[in-house]
Design a protein around this nucleic acid. Structure first.
Lengths: 351, 351
DNA sequence: CTGAAAGCGCTTACAG
DNA sequence: CTGAAAGCGCTTACAG
């Protein structure tokens, strides 16, 4: 018997029954100890813990999930995993999940797909994640949000637009950040500042433009609408905008791009055209993506606390499952940081 | 009764029992139909399918997992999710998982962590994934591989080094690719070609260097060892190497960097120093990362079939669970593609 | 071609 | 402070 039990424990993972038998308690007590419930005598707790350790016991997730109210799974929904933004969020989410005994399941949603909401429905119904994290731009997709609400899955949105703020979310203050970085340029002496807008469907685009306008207004500067160009958050739209701007008779002395990818496009184009950065053209971005610090000159930008935002999102989801439900939607605002590097300087000549 | 049943089905997801009752069959038959088993009368199958559709029935993963031999979960282990390489793999893996009814759980492994193998052990024991995909460099980490073997979890390695090829894996022919790209440079007229090595601990570094040497030898060219520089696959090592090379009395006319990030570092440095690319310096990379085509001039490089490699890895894991186990380890080699862009040209002047 | 029974490994009420 | 019983929602062997 003992021989068989031992060989079994080596071959197959131990179960709660084996731990209970060996510790001389019921499986319920083992469960209590492992879930850190109260009302267990200290020495009983010790013993169970020791036996669990000896048998290298790990509760099986599918069993806990089937019996209990939690799946210990959190979903991360994104549009494109290549984006530095998503990578930052994923990094924070996986780490905090591990710390909380959760696991992160990733799913990409092609918003073009016609059966997108049925795909999502399928995933939610099969997996039953305890919560789901949505990144821009899908955190503002009405169809996606409807599918999630229909499934009754708790969610946390990362940097949602207006409508999304009725749901639990975590974000930073894009308006103030854009304002602050614009102040920086103005303080340097810039007056003709071009602003490169982000994708129209993304909420952040509007916030950042608003911050830019506010700062200009605060300094009594009029915004030259011909210096407001439409971009889409991609590198190439930065190139296009810069090409257009730098060919003008009176080019701007600074460009504020709504994200780093576009700022990098502006930077590359400036260099290609022989425009000195920062002396002839200052450039600021937004995000502090890994490439921002690798560029030369390194980009002045706004550091989004993606890692912390993701960790906070996981916390909200994990706490929600253990606490009472139905509480009012909460939002957490995390601090950003303006990172001044070498792509900004005083304008060479005043115009 | 009926009223209650309906309101239940609206509030809570339907279970197999409800489908069985409504279709007038046993739950076993429902199970057979949904798992596409044979031996079900066509009309019975139709009816079950229709009822399942009506009730919007989705089998709960945790129940299937607990009762059966599969978890429908596949793990993706990586070191850093920001790397374009990992993003490419993740993209292919999530898509194929969805097509196969599986889900992808991501986990980052900091190889510096002292308790790394216990972290991994924990994850494998709790989640019981049906398989796990390992990306470089951790696919060659002995400790990681030992933990996975101990857990008995099937795995597929993406582009492993020598030792890893005893395990199931999917890769491309790095040696030939490097050879081909070197031929390209030689064919263009380059003789003094610098080679920028990758991180020593990564297998790909050695394969690519070998291909370079082979091509040189095939053309009867001697490799100038002073033109072989050590890099680490990061952008900055490309900058460092280029700075060193371009300051020499006799700089090379071309640089073959072992990956795109380093090639981009070389490119940026060349431009900073006023060296014309490709006329004064040709540059080739390896990977075809997203940034390679955005650079200016766009990078000549080798396209790794990351998406397909990941999809193939998922297939191997999924098929393995449904087929007989214990088969010999297999390896799949996928075709690469040399992508010629604007960073390569004939050398300006022969030396 | 179909079904009744047992069981996967836990948690949830409940009782003491 | 502790445990016996029931049950989560499926699949697995087995029987017919």
């Amino acid at each position: 018997m003992a021989g068989i039990a031992v060989s079994r424990s080596l071959a197959l993972p131990a179960t709660i029954v084996q731990v209970a038998e060996r510790a001389g308690v019921s499986i319920k007590t083992v469960s209590r100890v492992l879930n850190k419930e109260s009302n267990v005598r200290p020495d009983t707790r010790e013993r169970v813990l020791r036996v669990a350790q000896e048998l290298n016991y790990r509760p099986k997730l599918s069993a806990r999930s089937l019996a209990g109210a939690r799946s210990f799974l959190i979903g991360l929904l994104y549009y494109d995993p290549s984006a530095a933004y998503v990578a930052g969020v994923q990094r924070g989410a996986t780490l905090r999940c591990r710390e909380s005994g959760y696991h992160l399941v990733v799913e990409s949603i092609a918003s073009v797909a016609h059966d997108m909401s049925s795909q999502l429905d399928h995933m939610l119904a099969a997996l039953r994640p305890d919560g789901i994290i949505l990144t821009p731009p899908i955190c503002d997709d009405a169809e996606v949000l409807a599918a999630i609400e229909a499934a009754g899955t708790p969610c946390v949105l990362i940097s949602p637009g207006h409508r999304g703020r009725a749901l639990p979310h975590v974000c930073m203050d894009d308006v103030h950040a854009a304002e602050e970085v614009t102040h920086l340029l103005i303080g340097l002496g810039h007056r003709r500042i071009a602003f490169l807008k982000g994708a129209p469907e993304q909420a952040a685009s509007a916030w950042r433009l608003r911050g830019f306008r506010r700062a200009m207004k605060a300094h009594g500067l009029e915004v030259d609408e011909s210096l407001l160009l439409q971009g889409d958050f991609f590198f190439q739209s930065g190139e296009r905008a810069a090409t257009e701007l730098l060919r003008r008779r009176r080019p701007p002395s600074a460009v504020f791009a709504s994200n780093d990818d576009m700022a990098l496009g502006v930077l590359a184009t400036a260099q290609r055209l022989g425009v000195q950065v920062p002396h002839e053209l200052s450039i600021v971005g937004f995000d502090d993506s890994p490439a921002a610090s690798l560029a030369w000159p390194a980009l002045t930008t706004v550091r989004q606390p993606l890692f912390d935002m993701a960790a906070a999102a996981v916390d909200m989801l994990v706490d929600r499952t253990s606490e009472a439900d139905g509480r009012a939607a909460v939002g957490r605002v995390l601090p950003y940081e303006v990172v001044v590097r070498a792509s900004t300087a005083a304008p060479q000549r005043k115009k």
